[in-house]
């Protein structure tokens, strides 16, 4: 096994990891702050992809403007969902069960809405011309677009870190996530903050859908397929832990990239196997402090 192959697999795994992270980051953010496991997160990914298609391929907006619009659109949809529906079940007895049903119902509804508006055929948008090619580092090839995805992923990770650690809003969020009532009594506008976080996270979902539109298939049903993958990532990293999502994505991306060289027949079980190991030895995930739960 030569170095080029290893390098190529490493970079391939890194690219996968960043795509995974972009979806999972929003999921874990909602979980960490709003304390909701948003099964419909994949549907915001789907909306992002279709919004980007509508903006770029139909309305002829530039690519990056389209990606921005798609993220904002998905975020707006998320705020609506939070404001009109999710908000009504906070604190209800047996909330978790209702959360599952509510977010699951949005998967079904949004899937049909997408089908009604855009039909069932596959949609495509083109990458910006400047990003169509690839770099060559010796034998190893790396698509330019993938590099952009990695940069966006890192930017999101850093941006979120800065937002949570360095801003007043971030401080409020940390307060809310550790004790909602206390934060509220200290004058934090909790309902507003929750809406904003939900919007931000679904905008991240939309962003990941939009930037994956040129390299994946835009079709109804694509949302539900990313949700289990993202779930695995956040469970491995530690539910609600932002950096955990990054670590989880890197682990899954690289395990898959190298695993397929040795056990190509078992690729679909890799992520489950990693998850099983993590759950058996560290049920709270890699980055959750021991004993923090319960």
């Amino acid at each position: 096994m030569d170095g080029n192959l290893l390098a190529a697999q490493f970079i391939g795994g890194l690219t996968s990891a960043m795509s995974l992270f972009l979806v999972a980051s929003g999921l874990t953010l909602i979980f960490g702050v709003v304390n909701v496991f948003n099964f419909a997160h994949g549907s915001f990914y789907l909306l992002g992809a279709y919004f980007a298609y509508q903006a770029v391929a139909v309305s002829g907006v530039g690519f990056w403007a389209g990606v921005l619009l798609a993220s904002l659109g998905a975020g707006a949809a998320g705020v609506l969902m939070e404001y009109f529906f999710l908000r009504r079940i906070y604190g209800r007895a047996g909330e978790a069960g209702f959360q599952i049903l509510l977010t699951y119902s949005f998967i079904l509804i949004l899937d049909d809405v997408v089908k009604m508006i855009w039909g069932t055929d596959y949609k495509s948008i083109s990458k910006p011309v400047a990003l169509a090619g690839s770099f060559s580092l010796g034998e190893v090839t790396m698509p330019r677009y993938d590099l952009v995805v990695i940069v966006i992923g890192l930017a999101v990770a850093f941006g979120m870190w800065a937002a949570i650690r360095k801003t007043r809003f971030g401080r409020n969020l940390r307060a809310i996530s550790s004790n909602r009532e206390m934060a509220s009594s200290l004058g934090v506008n909790v309902p507003l903050a929750l809406s904003l976080v939900f919007g931000l996270a679904t905008a991240l979902g939309g962003l990941s859908g939009a930037i994956s539109a040129p390299v994946r298939t835009v079709t109804p049903g694509a949302g539900i397929e990313v949700i289990i993958g993202s779930l695995i990532v956040v469970v491995i990293g530690g539910l609600g832990n932002f950096w955990g999502a990054l670590v989880g994505a890197l682990v899954i991306g690289e395990v898959t990239a190298f695993g397929i060289l040795f056990l190509p027949q078992w690729a679909i079980l890799f992520s489950y196997a990693v998850m099983a190991l993590v759950l058996i030895f560290r049920p709270e995930g890699l980055l959750m402090k021991r004993g923090a739960v319960r």
Partner: peptide, 26 residues
Amino acid sequence: LCIRLSGVYFTMLTLAFAEMVWGIVF
């Protein structure tokens, strides 16, 4: 393995293990 955690973490663990059983059957 699941009851080590409680609340929604328990819920996610049950889901994760069930998905693994699904993977094996599949």
